[in-house]
Every structure is written in structure tokens, then in C-alpha cells.
Amino acid sequence: MALNTPQITPTKKITVRAIGEELPRGDYQRCPQCDMLFSLPEINSHQSAYCPRCQAKIRDGRDWSLTRLAAMAFTMLLLMPFAWGEPLLHIWLLGIRIDANVMQGIWQMTKQGDAITGSMVFFCVIGAPLILVTSIAYLWFGNRLGMNLRPVLLMLERLKEWVMLDIYLVGIGVASIKVQDYAHIQAGVGLFSFVALVILTTVTLSHLNVEELWERFYPQRPATRRDEKLRVCLGCHFTGYPDQRGRCPRCHIPLRLRRRHSLQKCWAALLASIVLLLPANLLPISIIYLNGGRQEDTILSGIMSLASSNIAVAGIVFIASILVPFTKVIVMFTLLLSIHFKCQQGLRTRILLLRMVTWIGRWSMLDLFVISLTMSLINRDQILAFTMGPAAFYFGAAVILTILAVEWLDSRLLWDAHESGNARFDD
């Protein structure tokens, strides 16, 4: 018995066209964080690309023209004298008006014999932002004059995390709450300039795509075929072959399989920071003279006294001054041990922890910024005066060393310790 099946006739004509040209192939790229070699397709503007294995951002879609970056830099340069030299806060102490600005706080630190601690604050609040705007201006002028731009481009990517104007702005709020127990506070004209400078700096850093600047100024022929001998440069993120001198053909720094002496430098910085954190938390970090009496505060006791007036601000200072430094030390110690013992479990967790400490590390400088600003506000000789204690130097040095330890660690070593050939990683 035959089955009668109805015929289905399409209502619209289906047209099949042959592909007349070869589909576009992607360029081969190595991930600078996990060293995976993959094919990167062509990316349009405002599109980002991520590593298929570790999800690290390979290409950032946010990109401004150099002219727009230069305009932002010149605007920031105009704001800087007002943000640093004009009063941020006014207080009335014992019937006398006192003005506080950024430069005055750094000068008070240096004047009291601790120039190293003052230079830490100076670099993060004044030096690094000033280098940022002058570097962008150098790129703008240098591109037109045919100057060598490689050193500036190499420095810009590392400079971003040292620009800490946003953290200093939080420190202004913390210092205001600490001082309000002794005097009446009012915002100064410099505060508005400083807030504007923070906003412009944040926007500029978020749109400063150094890798795209490398592509514009020093374009290189990408690798179009897969080759395990391809290496990625950690300076400019170019994937290719080393030249005859073993250097990256684009930025001219040595092109090595792994960062040289990464573990040794990381261990040295980490152990030194552990040693410095002990006096930083045991010795007094601030000293207040009130009517001839002397009151010393460690980091913890200062947080407890701050909690009596504002528990939320005390929580912020606790996280930045105690929780973050010790968390960074514990995480980095764990990561280094996992590399030495070739741990194969929990790779995803370790990668996330490394990215976390990379982002939060700079916030530990908050305590030094609060001390710097408070020193310029309260300084009335023996009637009422505020000065920093010996722990300030140890704390600042420990924070900087932990930042350097994270920067010096080559994250690809975590993958080397893991089993080879993993296309995915999980716990």
C-alpha cells in the first residue's frame, strides 16, 4: 500500500549564491595573561575582544583620537594649579581661619623630617597626573615632529594605576569627618577644581587605549598563520617573532617567553612588605597634641575612634588600611606557593584573586592621604596640633611594595603550573 505524501511548494523562490571570495581570516594573537594562541577576527570600533580561555580583555573598544586626548590633557593642565594650590577646605580653629590644600599637606610631611613619605604622596597625587598630561601632550606634538614615541607609550600603561586623584578625593571626605570634632569646616574653591580634575582624569584614563596608539604610530604586520613560536610582548602586546637582537619589532624591548626574574622580584617585594606591615600596624601612625597632652593612634585605634562619629567612614578606612593590605599579602603568598608547588586545582579562583588584588591594591594609600591633609588643617603649635607617627613611612612603603609585587608577577606562570593543553579552566 503506497502512502500519498503531499508536496510542499515554497511560496518564495530560494536563491543560492556561491561564495565568490575567501572568507576573511583572523590574525593570530597570544593572550598576555595566559599565553593562549588564538585567531582574533577583525574588530570594529566600539567592540571589545576577550581571550577565549581566561576571559582577559585583549582589545578595548573604547578609543579616543589623539586630538581629543590632547584637549583633555590641556584642560587638566589648566585645572591643576587651582586643584593643588587653592584651598580645598576652610576650618575655623580657636577663632582663626585655616586653609588646607594639597601642596601644603605634602610640605608639612616633608617639613617634619619625613621627606620619603611626603614624596610618596607627591608622586601619586601630583607627579603621576602631571606625567600623564605631559605624556599625552608629548605624543600629540611628537607625532607631528617625527619624534620617538616608544618610551612614552611604554610608560603610559604602567602609569595608570599610580594616578590616585580619586583616592585622594575620598581622603578629603575622611579628613573632614575627623577634623569636624575640633573645628567648623567649609569647602574651599580649590575643592571644585579638584573634583573637576578627578572627573576629567577618570574619563581620560578610561578612554586612553595605549594598544590602539601603538597600532597608529607603529603598525606591524600581524601573524596570519598559526605558529607556536609566536611570542607576545608584555610592553606593547604585539604578537610576532623577535628581531635579530631578540627584541620586539614594535617597542624594541627584549621579547622573552616569560617575564625575567618574575618570581624572585615578586618574592622579594612580598617578604619586604610583610616585614614592614608589622611596625606599620604596631607603631603610632598619627599623633595629636591637645592642650599640651599627647595622644597617639595606631591604624586600628584611629579607626575605632573614627567609628564613634561615623561608622560608615570608619568601615571604608578599615577596608583600605587593614583589610586590603593583608588580603593582598595572603593572596600573593598563596599564588606564589601554588606556582612553586605546581598546583593544578582552583586555577579559576587564583586568576580571579590576582585580578582582584590588581584592582584594589592602590586604595591602601588612602590613610597616607588623610594624614597629609589633616596635617595641613590642624597645626596650632602646642594648643592643638596633628602630626604623623613613625608607622606612616612603614605603611606607605608596604603598600608600594605590594603594588610592585602584583605588577611583577607574570600571570602566565600560573598556567605553566597548571596542566598543559587546557582550553578551559575551572575549579
Rank of each mutant, 00 (worst) to 15 (best):
A115F: 02
R258V: 04
I58V: 12
V102W: 05
L413V: 10
L404H: 07
R216Y: 11
I403W: 01
L409F: 10
N143R: 15
L354M: 10
Q55G: 10
R424H: 15
C51S: 01
L323D: 00
T239E: 00
G302L: 02
W267R: 02
Q264C: 01
A223D: 11
I371P: 04
I172F: 12
H184G: 12
K12H: 14
D410S: 00
L282I: 05
F386C: 01
A2E: 09
V324G: 09
F141S: 01
I58L: 06
Q104T: 09
V313K: 04
D114E: 13
T358W: 12
Y394G: 03
R412I: 00
R260Q: 02
E161T: 14
T117H: 02
K12G: 13
V232N: 11
S65Y: 08
H252I: 03
V195L: 15
L205F: 08
A268S: 09
R59N: 14
D166C: 15
L257W: 15
M103F: 05
T202H: 15
A385H: 05
P151T: 03
W92A: 03
H184C: 04
V370C: 07
S309D: 08
L130I: 08
M155C: 04
Y138D: 01
L197R: 00
A100G: 04
I371C: 05
C51F: 08
E296N: 15
T239H: 03
L154H: 11
D99R: 11
D181S: 03
E212I: 15
L366N: 09
K111P: 04
E211S: 10
P284G: 06
I288Q: 00
E212N: 13
D410L: 00
L156Q: 14
I311W: 11
I285M: 10
V16E: 13
N209T: 13
Q112V: 05
V189G: 09
F194H: 10
L347W: 09
E86T: 07
W140H: 04
I316P: 14
L401S: 06
D27S: 13
H207K: 06
D426Y: 12
G315M: 07
C343F: 14
A137R: 00
D381G: 13
R362L: 02
W140A: 13
V317H: 00
D35L: 01
R53E: 10
G26N: 10
A70Y: 14
Q382F: 14
D63M: 15
M80N: 05
I319F: 12
L89V: 14
D27A: 13
H46I: 11
C54N: 00
R259I: 06
D297R: 03
Q29H: 11
N143T: 14
I360Q: 06
T110E: 15
S372C: 14
I167A: 15
L93N: 01
Q29T: 14
A115V: 05
A56H: 12
R250E: 02
R150K: 14
L89A: 05
P284L: 03
Y28W: 11
L337P: 07
P219I: 08
H418E: 10
I287A: 05
G421W: 12
M72T: 09
D27G: 12
R245Q: 07
L271C: 14
H261G: 03
L401E: 06
R226V: 09
C54F: 00
R30C: 12
I274P: 02
S39Q: 08
R348M: 10
Q244L: 09
I299R: 00
A128R: 00
Y168L: 15
T402K: 06
M109D: 05
V152G: 04
G118Q: 09
V232G: 11
A2L: 09
E21W: 13
R150S: 04
P10T: 11
S45Y: 15
I167R: 12
V399L: 05
P242M: 10
D227N: 13
H46L: 13
N422F: 14
G95P: 01
R380P: 00
V406T: 08
S376C: 04
L37E: 12
